[in-house]
Nucleic acid binder design. Structure first.
Length: 560
RNA sequence: GGCAGGGUAGCUCAGUGGUUAGAGCAGGGGCUUCAUAAGCCCUGUGUCGCGGGUUCGAAUCCCGCCCCUGCCA
């Protein structure tokens, strides 16, 4: 029976290009997961969008003398281009700047306001008298009261790492004009997280064995300490407006509305499909499962706060909104052992990568090092090595050797097999098992392990070809040779599906070489036996071998 | 400082009490020639971060410490 699967993927800030850390942390695993489930016949809805309201965007816009809309739309367009070129197959990729998103956000805001889960409170905040506006905590700088370091920010000190309040700082200054900010009162809205502490704790304690232990323990630990109410509005004019009179100079803060994007995007998708109520199938059917693909820095919002928002909204509306079924947060990717850093140019940007390389090899390499349990390290040497020694040598060569040999010697079509031997059937079962294992592992969000299952079967297929040596059989026993090639093609057909979530572009190409039409996923998550006599297209190598020297060139480009 | 995760072969990682700690890749030796000099076979003693402890027996459990990463609203 088809399952309904909702995938929420982290909303990137539209204030800079995508780098491979974001790709490996959220978008790639989500896409692998989505492609597998679609092929397995499940109903997948994969949504995300650009967060156009982040404060970094207004800062950047101010610095560059542009409007925030302008900055956001530049990167939003670039993201769309990246998804397409990297094969990240969203069903709906939108932004937090839509009318629909504002409407859904404001509805949730007002419903929670009615039930008292959102309430107002007066805060004392830093106010810059020169600019005549309130400053975000991080825009106040001064000396850390704890370690004495200069250049501590009002939210935390980078030197000692401790969280701070702006008025803790000695000699606080406005980051922009170095004036001394004064404390002023401002009324803000708060989310009553404390009221849901027990409910969230209970929820996190039940049926969470499939969660990654760091995610579950981390979230559970915070409920042990007790959730505290948190302000959800800011003194800003760039954001979703507060639907209450008298708050014109304030906006809903991004962390409150960005997660709501998962719901608003599903609603937008349903409207565009011409089935405006269908989003409910993923959000309100208790059988539907929702997965949130994010980085570890985002566990707070997805495992604690978003569930509270959903619980509150469910209570307020009397309708039930599904809580996250899983939050498979990834750890981080380092570049040559160091933290990625924009200012040090220590990052690999996706648009730049795509000007020189193909998407599948990057997807492959990133999947083999995916930071599922610990931080992982990207190196260009590793990329070249995995591409050449595994993708090209093991999988690409298997396909190429079998298809070119068949094409040359068997009339450019799938050979007519004789009876399959025990060994032939063993290979086919081996591939079927690999397919099943890969599916199981992907469904459990163990992506590295799923890929290894496929590659391991590809090595087995190479062994089969070696053992049966069709190049010898060609002269001695043509029928047996045909049977061996047929079996090898069947194995390749199965592996094409097993590897498709990881390598969608080249597997689709291979699908065509095997004489098929339509998308790979249409064949289902199973080994489709090739039809004898079907014409084979002229095969070309699926992957390019890379010159090891490019590793040095690229690493020099990193500026380390 | 508190909380969480991680620290296993050159590299990427499996391995939650029990035979001589495993896999892929790299390295070394051999075979093969259909294939992008690709493939196949053989080859793995590494202080399982460090120090204690529990146990007949620990990478695996307990205590302390060190290092890396994230979060601290």
């Amino acid at each position: 029976m088809a399952e309904r699967i909702l995938l929420g993927v982290a909303w990137p800030y539209a204030n800079g290009s995508l780098h491979i850390g974001q790709l490996v942390g959220a978008y790639l695993p989500a896409d692998i997961f989505a492609r597998y489930h679609r092929a397995a016949g499940n109903d997948v809805l994969m949504v995300s969008g650009s967060d156009v309201h982040g404060t970094p965007i207004t800062v950047r816009a101010e610095q560059e003398g542009r409007s925030p809309e302008d900055v956001a739309s530049e990167y939003h367009d670039e993201f769309l281009d990246c998804w397409q070129k990297m094969g990240i197959s969203f069903d709906c990729y939108t932004s937090t700047g839509t009318e629909n998103h504002a409407r859904v956000t404001q509805d949730i805001f007002l419903k929670l306001l009615e039930t008292g889960d959102i309430f107002t409170q007066t805060m004392e905040l830093p106010y810059c008298t020169v600019e005549g506006r309130f400053l975000l905590d991080r825009y106040v700088e001064g000396t850390c009261p704890l370690c004495g370091s200069d250049g501590a920010r009002g939210d935390q000190c980078d030197n000692c790492g401790r969280a701070l309040d702006p008025f803790d700082l000695k000699d606080p200054k406005c980051k922009f004009d170095f004036s001394t900010p004064e404390p002023r009162e401002s009324e803000h809205f708060f989310l009553r997280l404390s009221a849901y502490n027990e409910a969230v704790k209970t929820w996190l304690s039940e049926d969470k064995d499939h969660w990654r232990k760091n995610v579950r323990n981390f979230a559970l630990g915070l409920t042990e300490q007790g959730l505290q109410d948190r302000s959800i509005t800011r003194d800003l004019v760039w954001g979703v407006p507060i639907p209450v009179e008298g708050f014109d100079t304030k906006r809903i803060y991004v962390w409150f509305d960005a997660v709501i994007g998962y719901l608003s995007a599903a609603i937008e998708w349903a409207e565009k499909e011409g089935t405006p109520e269908r989003w409910r199938e993923w959000w309100q059917d208790p059988e539907a499962k929702s997965y949130y693909f994010i980085g570890k820095d985002n566990i707070w919002f997805h495992a604690l706060i978003w569930p509270v928002q959903l619980m509150g909204y469910s209570k307020a509306t009397g309708e039930t909104y599904n809580l996250p079924y899983d939050v498979p947060a990834n750890q981080f990717l380092t570049i040559k052992g160091s933290k990625a850093s924009t200012s040090k140019r220590l990052a690999v940007w996706v648009p730049d990568f795509l000007t020189r390389y193909d998407p599948d090899p990057l997807r492959y390499y990133l999947a083999t090092i995916m930071p599922e349990t610990a931080d992982a390290d990207f190196t260009w040497a590793g990329f070249v090595q995995r591409n050449n020694d595994e993708l090209v040598a093991t999988w690409g060569n298997l396909v190429n050797r079998v298809l070119t040999f068949t094409h040359k010697n068997f009339d450019k079509s799938v050979p007519e097999p004789g009876d399959l031997s025990e060994g032939d059937r063993a290979l086919i079962s081996r591939v079927e098992e690999a397919l099943e294992e890969a599916g199981r592992e992907i469904a459990a969000c163990n992506f590295r392990s799923a890929l290894e299952a496929g590659m391991s079967a590809a090595r087995e297929a190479n062994r089969y070809v070696e053992d049966n040596a069709p190049w010898k059989l060609l002269k001695e026993d043509r029928e047996r040779c045909a049977t061996v090639l047929y079996t090898a093609i069947a194995a390749i057909s199965g592996l094409k599906t097993a590897l498709y979530p990881f390598l969608p572009f080249t597997c689709q190409k291979l699908h065509g070489y095997l004489g098929n039409e339509g998308p790979v996923q249409a064949g289902g998550w199973r080994l489709v036996m090739p039809a004898a006599g079907r014409p084979l297209a002229e095969p070309e190598p699926l992957f390019k071998k890379l010159d090891p020297e490019i590793a040095e060139e690229e690493e020099a480009r990193l500026g380390v």
